[in-house]
Design a protein around this nucleic acid. Structure first.
Lengths: 151, 151
DNA sequence: CATTTGGTTCAATAAATATTGAACCAAATG
DNA sequence: CATTTGGTTCAATATTTATTGAACCAAATG
């Protein structure tokens, strides 16, 4: 494969690793992005990434589970093909928003354990309100985008 | 220490671990949140978390570097004290927005490597525009919050 | 019903990361 | 200027996580 493409795949690996996926999953995403094939088989991916079957099997399962990738099957073909999920663009971010709500809750729980009222109390409270608020607002932004970019 | 507090500290450890910090750094954040002391010394933290000096040293350095924690010094006292950063609430999120811009750029780079125009091309383009757009919008939301919650 | 295909599973291993603990250092104190 | 304090540094170790590869399995094919 073209060297630029190989570099891109590695770059993608490192990027998704920063988001908490494995490097291999990030590579697979990178490959799916640029491979110029509509549906990519297990074998194609294994070849392209030069990894073991076991590793690809685990990787694709986690990408499917996380919703980043869809499986596609074709009639008269036992292989499973993979492609980047075609669900609405904001879905990925929407699911990340759950973390914000969880953060907000953690902060409130922290506050409830405090025995003194001080500047930290205030910080905990404001930060909790901030994350809870902005998570809702971001949800609305996502809706707005999706309405405008209707399928 | 109270058992609820110890549990909270562990919970905080796990939460921040999900965000990509170390568990120990998350524990330190948890402790700083609920310790009911304005300034907490290295030694206090080490005691509370039952870890080695080396581990606490590295942990506090990374929390300082990431901007989550501030160092405080007191006149006539050589110790360094630590507390949760008092910078504006949205700063933490604002810095995360750089990831969105980076994601957008990764997607565009991917697109530039494609040789065919297909549904993936479209996805890459729309998703890149989405993340770039929403990152700006979120920046504005943060501004709005900070204006309303003026210090 | 034997063989091939398209994987999955899992124990072993490799690689990456976090933690310890001892040695060390600079600044403050006696 | 010797000692104490408040750490830092770093090699060794422990822990966690990812990857391999061989054994395995079910469904499709011959």
């Amino acid at each position: 494969m073209d060297n630029n493409k190989l570099n891109f795949i590695e770059e993608s690996g490192l990027f998704f690793e920063k988001l908490g996926l494995t490097r291999m999953a990030g590579r697979a995403m990178g490959f799916l992005m640029i491979c110029d094939r509509d549906a990519v088989s297990f074998d194609d991916i294994q070849q392209a990434l030069g990894a073991s079957k076991g590793s690809i099997s685990g990787t694709m399962k986690m990408l499917l589970h996380s919703g980043l990738v869809d499986a596609v099957s074709l009639p008269g073909d036992r292989k499973t093909y993979y492609r980047i999920s075609r669900k609405r663009v904001g879905e990925m971010l929407r699911s990340r928003m759950k973390l914000f709500e969880a953060f907000s809750e953690l902060l409130l729980k922290g506050n409830s354990l405090k025995e003194k009222t001080d500047e930290t109390t205030e910080w905990l409270d404001e930060t909790a309100r901030f994350y809870s608020w902005i998570q809702t607002e971001i949800g609305e932004l996502i809706d707005k985008w999706e309405e405008k970019n209707q399928r």
